[in-house]
Design a protein around this nucleic acid. Structure first.
Lengths: 154, 154
DNA sequence: TATTGTTATACTCTATAACTATA
DNA sequence: TATAGTTATAGAGTATAACAATA
């Protein structure tokens, strides 16, 4: 009974569903998945240039321009000139943006606890260990593929 | 050291990365994530009406029309009239589509095994148990939210 | 010369609404 | 009357390329 072959499919299926759940819940706040993702990174990165956000999100600078435009229009962030580099813009969370992210952080903690309810401390530890292993192995694979100049995993 | 609060974030992060990896590898075959998703469902559902695909993918019928158009144009599927219902269309994998999905299935098995390498049989069992628990708990949450008529998890 | 962000352009995914042809 | 699929329309996300201002 080797269950390894199914791991990837289960991981993908669960998270696709969770993402759709999330997207639906964001709509309530007038947010989309991509915009929320940016906001979430900004929550960590404090005031940040768009360049930095583009790198963090692994997305084109042009894309960030559009997302920030929308978030400015809806009042979640503001643009301000960079104090030392007049080419750059600093994007900052407004109070609304900040409050929304704080709220979301606490909802995520709650959600996490719901999701693992019934596993027990040991079960959770095993799950996290498993997820970390997967993340690490993925990184190794990507590195190898990158070095071979031939992206190949599917 | 309660690790439960992080479970959701880790799950999301890993799968977002895996999805991007996947999308990149699909490009090699002239496929996108959504089109591959449809192909993957079709691999299970044999000849299928577009309506059924729309339900399986949780997507609008109009959307399926577009995806199938693209897959027909690139030779992965064909449309054929439904034998008993002249309103409906049956979508079927071509040899190319079928071969591509078979190949992908085997690549996913390989990828899965890579991803859990180092965990050991027991570790894998724990991981799968954890993922199943999460999936089950999510289902319960969605049901509850649905009954309360107020989608609420975040 | 290199970098930051923008305008221009284009493609994909997605949705709703109105319509056609069946059932 | 209800269902299967399409046309029409629209908005969001994404990318590349060309360009402006600045470093």
């Amino acid at each position: 009974m080797d269950k390894a072959p199914e791991v990837f499919d289960r991981l993908l299926e669960i998270t696709v569903l969770l993402q759709k759940d999330l997207a639906r819940s964001f709509e309530t706040n007038g947010l989309t998945l991509s915009r929320t993702h940016l906001l979430w990174e900004l929550h960590r990165l404090s005031p940040s240039t768009q360049q930095r956000l583009a790198t963090a999100l692994q997305v084109s600078p042009r894309n960030v321009t559009g997302l920030v435009d929308a978030l400015v229009a809806t009042g979640f962030v503001i643009r301000a000139p960079h104090p030392h580099d007049r080419r750059a813009t600093l994007v900052t969370l407004t109070e609304l943006g900040s409050a929304t992210m704080t709220e979301m952080a606490s909802q995520r903690v709650q959600l996490s606890q719901h999701l693992v309810a019934g596993l027990g401390d040991e079960g959770v530890t095993h799950l996290v260990l498993g997820l970390d292993t997967v993340a690490e192995r993925r990184r190794v694979l990507v590195d190898e593929a990158g070095r071979a100049e031939a992206p190949e995993p599917a």
